[in-house]
């Protein structure tokens, strides 16, 4: 039994479905990426998993228990933590207050501080005054303080320098390995994603077009790149620049 099992998911805004018949899974301790071009339906899929977008058909189970009937807040309490694309932080709160809200204790648990030592240094700073990387760190820390069984992260690297992005992936790996947490990310940088994750689902045209381990997918990288840059955009053997 997978940690997260999504079957036949059809969801969208109003009556028009944006994603159709999506099937994907995440195991405990596994890091999975959802890849695909803009408009392929990746973000909508994540929103449907956390409950912010209504389901028109399909089933979502966490640890074998269906969560489809739960409100977003209840899904969060059941163990799904979603870091959305806009991060949805609380700009007028301080870092400490954000952590306190998430943990019910004044300090973050030791293992979270271990992952993000910078949290202590930033304690009294207002969230609005943080840099992009610091905000993304806080968004992840806030979610991890709830000790989720599934962590969902949308466009983690949006607007961040490659150096910063490269610092976050080891953290996600450790979360998966040490906490047994399943991690599902949407990542626009295919190469970066393939370097760090265990498995990928590739979305195109509102549904999952291909799934497989990194080893299985690496030879098909042209296909993946094509989803972003259009056919033959990526330099291949016969198409030297």
């Amino acid at each position: 039994m997978s940690l997260l099992d999504v079957r036949g998911l059809t969801a969208g805004y109003g009556a028009v479905p944006v994603v159709r018949d999506v099937g994907l899974s995440v195991e405990r301790g596994e890091l999975v990426a959802l890849l695909g071009a803009n408009g392929a339906g990746k973000t909508t899929t994540l929103l449907a998993i956390s409950g912010l977008v209504g389901l028109q058909a399909g089933e979502i189970t966490l640890d074998g228990r269906p969560v489809t009937a739960l409100t977003p807040a209840r899904r969060a309490r059941a163990g799904i933590q979603h870091v959305p694309e806009d991060r949805s932080l609380f700009p007028s709160l301080t870092v400490d207050e954000t952590i306190r809200l998430a943990c019910r204790t004044r300090r973050a648990p030791g293992w979270v501080l271990d992952l993000f030592p910078a949290l202590e240094r930033l304690g009294g700073r207002r969230v609005a005054a943080l840099s992009g990387g610091e905000q993304q760190m806080l968004a992840l820390a806030r979610a991890l303080c709830r000790d989720p069984s599934l962590l969902v992260v949308d466009e983690m690297s949006l607007g961040l320098a490659p150096l910063v992005v490269n610092a976050f992936f080891p953290v996600l790996r450790r979360v998966a390995a040490e906490r047994g947490c399943g991690v599902l990310i949407v990542e626009q940088h295919v190469h970066v994603a393939l370097r760090w994750v265990d498995r990928v689902h590739v979305m195109a045209g509102g549904t999952v077009a291909a799934s497989g381990t990194v080893e299985e997918m690496r030879p098909r990288i042209d296909e993946l790149a094509g989803a972003y840059l259009g056919p033959s955009a990526y330099p291949t053997e016969g198409d030297k620049p």
């Binding site: 993000f116 992009g132 993304q136 320098a161 910063v164 953290v171 295919v190 190469h191 994603a193 330099p235």
Partner: peptide
């Protein structure tokens, strides 16, 4: 291509302790 797909470089730039975070301001 790098901007879209991420740099296809080696794995030497990682900093597992998260110390790179917050340094992007110097970019």
């Amino acid at each position: 291509i790098a901007a879209y797909l991420g740099a296809d470089e080696g794995e030497d730039s990682e900093s597992p302790d998260g110390s790179g975070i917050g340094k992007e301001a110097v970019r």
